[in-house]
Design a protein around this nucleic acid. Sequence first.
DNA 1: CACGGTTTTCCATATTGTGGAACGGAGCGG
DNA 2: CCGCTCCGTTCCACAATATGGAAAACCGTG
Lengths: 249, 249
Amino acid sequence: MDKSLGKGLLALEILAESEAPLGVTALAGRMGITKSNAHRLLTALVATGYAEPTQPRGSYASSLKLWRLGARIVARLDVKSIAAPHLARLVAETQETANLSVLDGPFMVYIDRVETDTYIRSYNRIGDRHPAHCTGTGLALLAHAPEETLAQALAEMKPHTPATITDPTALATRLAQIRRLGFATTRAEFRPGINSIAAPIRGAHGRVVAAIGLSGPAERLKPARVKTLAPLVAATAEKVSRLLGAPAP
Amino acid sequence: MDKSLGKGLLALEILAESEAPLGVTALAGRMGITKSNAHRLLTALVATGYAEPTQPRGSYASSLKLWRLGARIVARLDVKSIAAPHLARLVAETQETANLSVLDGPFMVYIDRVETDTYIRSYNRIGDRHPAHCTGTGLALLAHAPEETLAQALAEMKPHTPATITDPTALATRLAQIRRLGFATTRAEFRPGINSIAAPIRGAHGRVVAAIGLSGPAERLKPARVKTLAPLVAATAEKVSRLLGAPAP
DNA sequence: CACGGTTTTCCATATTGTGGAACGGAGCGG
DNA sequence: CCGCTCCGTTCCACAATATGGAAAACCGTG
């Protein structure tokens, strides 16, 4: 069904993820199709505005159109704009990196992020997607996710560090604990040496729609400090929840 | 050429821009195609992960995949991450809304924006695209754009308010002035009652790659205040330019 | 339960995408 | 300066593929 649509979208993906512009042969090679096919796909993408030929011509790069469309999608999740100033405040008060994530199946996706200018650039970027079971915001989201999503997450439980949780029942008790406390903490479960604190944000209907989190190096985020910061993160998430019209807890 | 690719992409656009999920008939109606055709496009989009059926099923919505791809694209323009803290500082010091834009043909696109929490939510959102000739950052970008882009912009010069500049030679002298001063100012040329100040950001090769701008209501951004703020905006743009590796001016 | 609104499936038709081969240019080395 | 090679681009006959009509499954409602 609709073979050429699939090919075209794949071409777009490869183009968007490629660092440098790609030529016809390069694209054909990566996709395993003929040159003439790749060329036709590219001209179609150019005609629709999703790709642009580079100068001097011979190569093609993805345009901003794709991104503009995507921006519309996240704009609908207006959690982002409402949470933004609170993310910034959290960073100002703690000097740690803050981020905002939503659930995408059994994964978490960063939709916003504010970094401290004092810290080394992190390897995570907005739009990156990681397994929910080993990240702070991921766990906070999973703790309030529907049964079905949890089942998907169980299937994705691979270890990323020695500390990654892999036992399904252990995960269940952990999620219960997160629900009880109102926040989640992790210790080097996704990236070695990186700890985190996260709390869920509820939307107008009281359901969890996003999570706000703080993460930083273990030397700075020691257990004692985590203990003092957790209420701050939880309070911030709660404040955003209220702004979204969530009922009192 | 590649008709179904075009249709599929159009379907994606409509889906992404629609506020609510769409059904088969609604999509077919907006696209002017048959229901069965729309249905096949949708199942193909679902198969490739760009759309998701809603529950209860019968409708379709765009997924986050599109946005994640787009995020990769802008991440490559690392102006955004480097400028972010400076945008924030500008907002903190002036209590006005700051934004960061790049040129997309004869249009400007907001790639980042920091709003002051004291002000009414603006109607512009990240990803929005507006004509360059009547916005602050647009003019700042246009003043340093290649001949070809300028020509395209001339073709797009439609008035948006009584104050919008529409005469090609007037635009030329204005751009020359902007180049001389190092910053651009506008007075209600795009939105009535909204003034702005903007300055260009240069990349590693000395070429202008983005612009930073401040905008706010005319009551607050009076000529006298604009005069004092302009050097601040220009200095901020200059600072970011240096961080990007731009040579001294 | 029957109705009007869906979404979904099926299928013959020809439109449309396909890949091979041939063309035109750019860059390189002899 | 020529001939080589590697690239993007064009062309075309063929067949795979998208197409739309009609009909079937579906769902909520009166």
